[in-house]
């Protein structure tokens, strides 16, 4: 008896290679302490370290997995900033074919403006599939993937955890609460908000990234006439006041462990 499970399902011989684009957003490294700027309406961006949005890293990995299985290409896109080159060269070192830096825009762009920008950059790229991280920690005005799909006039699906390809048909799993999933089918073009890649995102060897920084070129496109508005303004940004929350336990490991054990035992008794 032949069982058509997902691993066989997408081995179709006539599967068309897809050109996949992964728009990458750089976000502040949340391991560092975030501070508020002088007028209290944004985080202080001066000394921040940025890194790839973790969900975008999953989107890139899923794109590379699809390319390795079915052929095609992977193009990464990111707005210019201090750390952009490193992020884009890292993506090339992982296996992306082309990296495009979008220049001419300020930092801290709204999701709406970022979607317009990425939409404009995509107008000159031949693509079948756009994979983007399902969300980012600073999506104050909505998630990029959905906004980008609407901007491009193509369908979008968020919280995607599984992509299978057969012929020209994509079978997708969208995750709901409680581990329930919905299965959808569609044909390219489509924007997918990736929750998690099928495997843990790969690491790029630092030596390979350095080598590419010397040898490879990043493409550049300049954004023009982007409407930067999002329709809302921030009147205040702040760090929530601490102290009303947990009672903090102090001391050495033994003392703290004893306190916790007492607290739990009291609750259990």
């Amino acid at each position: 008896m032949v069982r058509a499970d997902r691993f066989q399902r997408d081995e179709g011989v006539d599967t068309k290679p897809m050109n996949i684009v992964v728009p990458i957003k750089l976000v502040p490294d949340l391991v560092e302490e975030l501070e508020i700027n002088e007028d209290g309406t944004d985080i202080d961006r001066e000394f921040l370290t940025y890194r790839i949005n973790e969900f975008d890293d999953h989107a890139l990995e899923e794109a590379l997995q699809l390319k390795e299985k079915h052929g095609g290409s992977v193009t990464v896109l990111a707005l210019e900033s201090e750390e952009t080159d490193k992020v884009l060269y890292t993506a090339l070192a992982k296996g992306a074919d082309r990296a495009v830096k979008v220049t001419g825009l300020p930092e801290g762009l709204s999701s709406h403006a970022l979607a317009r920008t990425m939409g404009q950059a995509l107008s000159n790229i031949d693509y079948d599939l756009v994979l983007v991280g399902v969300q980012a920690a600073d999506d104050r005005d909505g998630q990029l993937g959905v906004l980008l799909g609407k901007t491009l006039g193509i369908p979008h699906l968020s919280v995607v955890t599984d992509i299978a390809v057969e012929g020209n048909t994509l079978t997708l799993h969208k995750e709901y609460a409680g581990g329930i999933m919905a299965q959808f089918e569609t044909e390219p073009k489509v924007v997918l908000g990736i929750q998690a890649a099928r495997v843990i995102p790969r690491y790029a060897p630092v030596s390979r990234v350095r080598q590419l920084m010397k040898e490879a070129e990043l493409d550049e496109v300049e954004a023009s006439d982007i409407d930067l508005g999002s329709g809302t303004s921030v009147r205040r940004m702040y760090t929530p006041t601490r102290g009303e929350g947990a009672e903090m336990l102090e001391g050495d490991a033994e003392e703290i462990a004893s306190r916790i054990a007492d607290i739990i035992n009291e609750k259990r008794s």
């Binding site: 502040p28 949340l30 975030l34 508020i36 985080i43 920690a137 600073d138 104050r140 809302t232 303004s233 921030v234 009147r235 205040r236 940004m237 702040y238 760090t239 929530p240």
Partner: peptide, 11 residues
Amino acid sequence: LYGGKIYSESV
């Protein structure tokens, strides 16, 4: 925002 580390008030 930012994993709950920052709150923002939008108008």
